[in-house]
Amino acid sequence: MSSSDIFISETIGTAVLILLGGGVCAAVTLKRSKAYNAGWLAITFGWGFAVLTGAYIAAKSGAHLNPAVTIGLAIKGGIEWSQVPVYFAGELLGAMIGAVLVWITYYGQFRAHLTDPTVLSEHYGYLDSVDHEGMVEQSASPKAGPVLGIFSTGPEIRNVVQNLATEIIATVVLVLSILTLGLSADGKGVGVLGSLLVAFVVVGIGLSLGGPTGYAINPVRDLGPRIVHALLPLPNKGGSDWGYAWIPVVGPLIGGAIAGGIYQVAFA
């Protein structure tokens, strides 16, 4: 398979993953959405189905959709190390495209939510002034803006060691399940039945291990949309919480590498 095939497949598959995953977060978060306040079950199952759909679309390239999976498969020997940067590039670009598509899909809801005085008061604590277009001037900006959770993850309790450990542990579960389930005949990634199994694994991780950090378990799932959040012209969007941003990148990469190492020691 050529590098261009890998890049295109991973870009499109990851874009769909983030469109559907970020889409369910937007549906649950934004007040003018019909799914507003649908809850954690909706989010976890939404992300599971997002993985399933993206994996089917990107089956040609093995449907990594996740640099942690790519690292784990490279350590296992399922892909060449020379292909890793190509996978990474497609995954990151796709994640950014998917985040932009979420913004386009929910454009009106974003504006309504981010100019709602109740939302702004609840999030910022107090308002200095609001102009006629609903723009707020606040004395202090929080680390995470009112809609950052639609784009990226954040911890409920900010503890670097715990947050990093949570992401590592959850990612080990994800990647090890992919490496050990025999997901494709050629050993390069997720096969047709494997996509369904992985989708349920993602739902299980969300329900069991997602509470502390929101379970990024995928560096580009967090980094790509966080970059888009920082760049989009969203009113009153607040900060992108770059101080936390390294944890959902480094944690899953470490987790993917550990999963690859466990596979080599215990299953190879």
Rank of each mutant, 00 (worst) to 15 (best):
M1L: 15
D5M: 12
I6D: 02
I6P: 00
F7V: 00
I8Q: 03
G13W: 04
I18T: 06
G23D: 07
L30P: 07
L41M: 14
T53E: 09
G54A: 10
A58Q: 03
A59S: 15
K60W: 12
S61Q: 02
A68S: 15
A68D: 03
T70K: 06
L73I: 15
V84G: 08
Y87D: 01
L92M: 13
M96Y: 04
I97P: 00
L101Q: 05
R111A: 07
D116H: 01
P117I: 07
Y126F: 10
D131Q: 12
G134C: 09
G134W: 01
M135V: 13
M135W: 15
V136Q: 14
S141N: 11
K143C: 13
A144K: 08
A144M: 11
G149Q: 04
P155H: 03
Q162F: 10
E167R: 08
V173Y: 01
V175T: 06
S177K: 12
I178P: 07
D186C: 08
G187D: 05
G187E: 01
G189N: 04
A199H: 02
I205T: 09
L207K: 07
L209E: 01
G210A: 10
G210F: 02
P212T: 09
G214P: 06
G214Y: 00
Y215V: 04
A216T: 09
D222W: 07
D222K: 07
P225E: 02
L234I: 14
K237T: 04
D241I: 01
Y244I: 11
Y244S: 10
L253N: 09
I258D: 03
G260D: 05
I262F: 08
